[in-house]
Design a protein around this nucleic acid. Structure first.
Length: 733
DNA sequence: ACGGGCGTCTTTTTT
DNA sequence: AGACGCCCGT
């Protein structure tokens, strides 16, 4: 009991102990909200003797869910494993997989991510004889998602009326999209939530069942819930009324995804006898950081006034550095990291670099690699987004669900087996005519005349895999299946024969995938193929299983991420970069006051991640597309920080400068820090070398002979393979 | 069928 | 500048 409430302030204790009835916690940045949730779960289990499986905690990101679960387990031991901690989407998958059939959803539905969505839309456009160049699948996908996120979409009795607001092509496309999702037994991300609402609404017994299962409901980041999520929470807690929501209106940054800030502001009206607790003591950041953040957020009109109290006392001023260009910015950030590491004994993991858009990460990565500082990009280039990984997963998805046309089209001629556009078109046409799936056309003898070898081959491959999947529920079944598919599909042979620089890393990546499936099987011994695929399709920000393979301490890395991804995290030193008008605030958010205020909240979120020190950077000039340069004024947010909290710095890029015309950047020759060098020396394993483009790296593989020697080098997280004869490498001693 | 070369367009944030 | 898609030559 004592230890359950230890290290908590009075209000935090109150929040932990108030277990019955609706509870609303306004938790300012750094006010120990995760700690409160963790303690509250522990309190329910230990003190109130609630079985752990009756507790449901919902967060927004996989990362947050994982973190919370681990903290619960650390705090109360193995009982924590049974607490149901998931993202909204993962919870929806859980519910739909068990009960979806009640509303006509196959229990091994496929989840289509943004990519699959766009592929599907492209097909629809072609079939409807619309030009995918004019109507872009990507923007269509966005529109569809936007539509489905709306409250109106769930409530409307007349979809046509709603669709009429869009351009005249949208309605038929949207309807066709929905139709094909159904045919292919697929759900997109929005559907996961929408179908769950539909289920809970329509099937009372199932709702009762779930209400019984989860007696205590906790929702983190409640300010970011959209209407569907709001309804799910409402349904699930309706009986028990034991719902605890935690949030901060100042940290609402997902309105573009349908998040409705009113959900938290109206909570007191939505539930009866709500207990409200405000946590306003900040344990994370120093005084100057908090003052700067508060000063910025005060410019928002649409917010509840509040003041956060600092508990950490005085600290370093905010550093603002204006650099000449983007290279200078990256160089400033990386050299600051280096000097702080040297002088203050900080570790890599103490630093985080934030930016507004994903594309901004590249230069920072270049400079980090060059200095041989290990780093991790959160959410950026995703392992699961790689071609070879998607290919293998597409095989598995098709094996799991033969109606999944997107996956079939992806693999039917991959690796090439002589099934060209014409054959595929023939199959598609026949499927449409006969009203059956493409797989049925191939497998059940619909094709008359002589059947091409390739189709016969594909049919055999899939049938072998299908049999294999039916077989023995061995422990290693999934990874074995993946490996088999990799082999019998010819994918492996194809890559092995290719013997190019690229095919090597592809092979490595696929083996890394198989490894990670093995890991998955260890933690989920009961999981079958369907479950695995559904789990994995939600794991978008999964870190690269391939990364950091040569690091002693794989967690000691500098973290790079978008501001959106930074929510809920904290770091001693934070770099907030690209603070220029049109970048941050982003140019698409300058139209309305609402959008601008959301950008400002994003800025607030970023700054409040820092415990000790904040660096704000902007560059005077930006390179846009076409190599043109453009002057950018400093972000308005910079001027919202009181002057006395700021220490000004300036930094000019030393490696890059303008050429005479001032039109583009010119790279100065890169001078590696070579202690001594030897040009004719042979390289050996474990040698550290400098690559003219990638900088310092370490050799981990050498193969081939004579003028066909291939050298594989790791540069921090990235691995690359080069042909020796074409690559100028310098050895470092 | 397939890869290289060339022309196009690019830029928001994510489960 | 770089990614991507399309067309053409093989």
């Amino acid at each position: 009991m004592n230890n359950l409430l230890q290290n908590l302030n009075e209000r935090q204790q109150e929040a932990v102990c108030h277990t019955e009835g609706p509870l609303l916690i306004f938790a300012g940045a750094g006010s120990g909200k995760t700690r409160v949730i963790v303690h509250r779960i522990a309190y329910l289990i230990k003190e109130k003797k609630i079985p752990p499986y009756k507790i449901l905690a919902v967060t927004f990101t996989n990362k947050a869910a994982l973190e919370m679960k681990n903290r619960v387990i650390d705090f109360i031991g193995p009982a924590g494993y049974s607490v149901f901690v998931k993202t909204f989407h993962a919870m929806a998958v859980f519910i739909l997989r068990r009960h979806g059939e009640a509303i006509g959803i196959s229990n091994n539905f496929t989840i289509y991510d943004q990519n699959d969505q766009q592929t599907l839309l492209k097909q629809i456009l072609i079939d409807l004889r619309l030009d995918p160049k004019k109507i872009k699948p990507a923007s269509l996908a966005n529109k569809i998602s936007e539509l489905k996120d709306q409250r109106l979409y769930l409530e409307t009795k007349n979809l046509d009326l709603l669709l009429a607001d869009y351009s005249f092509n949208f309605a038929p496309i949207f309807k066709e999209y929905q139709k094909r999702l159904k045919e292919q037994e697929a759900l997109d991300f929005n559907d996961l939530l929408l179908k769950t609402v539909e289920l809970l609404k329509a099937k009372e017994e199932i709702l009762k069942d779930l209400q019984n299962r989860w007696k205590y409901l906790m929702i983190d980041e409640y300010q970011d819930t959209n209407y569907a999520q709001y309804l799910i929470a409402k349904y699930l807690s309706k009986e028990s009324q034991n719902i605890c929501v935690v949030g901060d209106d100042d940290q609402s940054i997902y309105s573009w995804r349908g998040a409705d800030i009113r959900n938290i502001l109206d909570f007191e009206q939505d539930y009866q006898q709500v207990k409200v607790i405000t946590l306003n003591e900040n344990y994370r950041s120093t005084e100057p950081i908090l003052q700067a953040a508060s000063a910025i957020i005060k410019n928002n009109k649409d917010r509840k006034e509040k003041n956060l109290l600092s508990c950490q006392g005085d600290g370093e001023k905010i550093k603002w550095c204006q650099t000449n260009n983007e290279y200078g910015e990256a160089e400033f950030v990386i050299s600051s990291i280096l000097s702080k590491k040297n002088r203050e004994g900080l570790k890599n993991k103490d630093f985080a670099i934030f930016y507004r858009t994903n594309a901004q990460s590249r230069l920072f990565e270049d400079f980090l690699r060059r200095e041989n500082i290990p780093y991790r990009v959160v959410g950026g280039l995703k392992f699961y987004a790689r071609k070879e990984i998607k290919d293998i997963l597409a095989y598995l998805r098709f094996i799991s669900n033969q109606n999944d046309k997107i996956s079939m089209l992806r693999v039917i001629n991959n690796p090439p087996r002589g099934i060209g556009r014409v054959s595929v078109e023939k199959i598609r046409a026949l499927a449409q005519k006969e009203g059956v799936s493409e797989w049925k056309i191939i497998n059940d003898g619909y094709l008359i005349g002589k059947i091409s070898k390739g189709i016969e081959l594909f049919k055999n491959i899939i049938n072998v895999a299908l049999d294999l999947n039916e077989e023995v529920p061995e422990k290693i079944k999934l990874s074995k299946l993946a490996l088999k598919v990799f082999e019998i599909s010819g994918y492996k042979k194809n890559l092995e024969e290719e013997k190019t620089l690229e095919s090597h890393s592809r092979l490595d990546n696929i083996y890394a995938l198989i490894n990670s499936i093995e890991d998955y099987e260890l933690t989920n011994p009961e999981a079958n193929l369907e479950q695995f695929l559904q789990d994995i399709s939600l794991f978008t920000s999964e870190e690269d299983p391939n990364e950091n393979f040569d690091l002693k301490d794989k967690d000691d890395v500098v973290t790079l991420m978008t501001l959106h991804n930074s929510k809920g995290l904290e770091f001693p030193i934070v770099f907030l970069t690209g603070l220029e008008e049109n970048t941050f605030p982003h140019k698409f958010s300058l139209d309305t006051e609402e959008e601008l205020e959301e950008e400002r909240r994003l800025c607030y979120v970023g700054i409040t991640r820092a415990k000790e020190e904040v660096f704000l950077t902007n560059s005077e000039v930006k390179r846009t597309f076409g190599g043109e340069v453009e002057y950018q004024s400093p972000s308005r947010f910079l001027f919202e920080v009181p002057k006395d909290l700021i220490e000004l710095k300036s930094f000019r890029s030393s490696d890059f400068r303008f050429n005479e015309s001032g039109q583009s950047f010119q790279q100065r020759e890169f001078k590696p820090k070579v202690v001594s060098r030897s040009n004719n020396s042979k390289f050996s394993l474990k040698d550290r070398v400098i690559h003219p483009k990638y900088g310092v790296g370490q050799i981990f593989k050498i193969e081939g002979t004579d003028d066909n020697v291939k050298i594989s080098i790791s540069f921090g997280r990235a691995r690359k393979t080069f042909l020796e004869k074409y690559t100028h490498l310098e050895k470092i001693y």
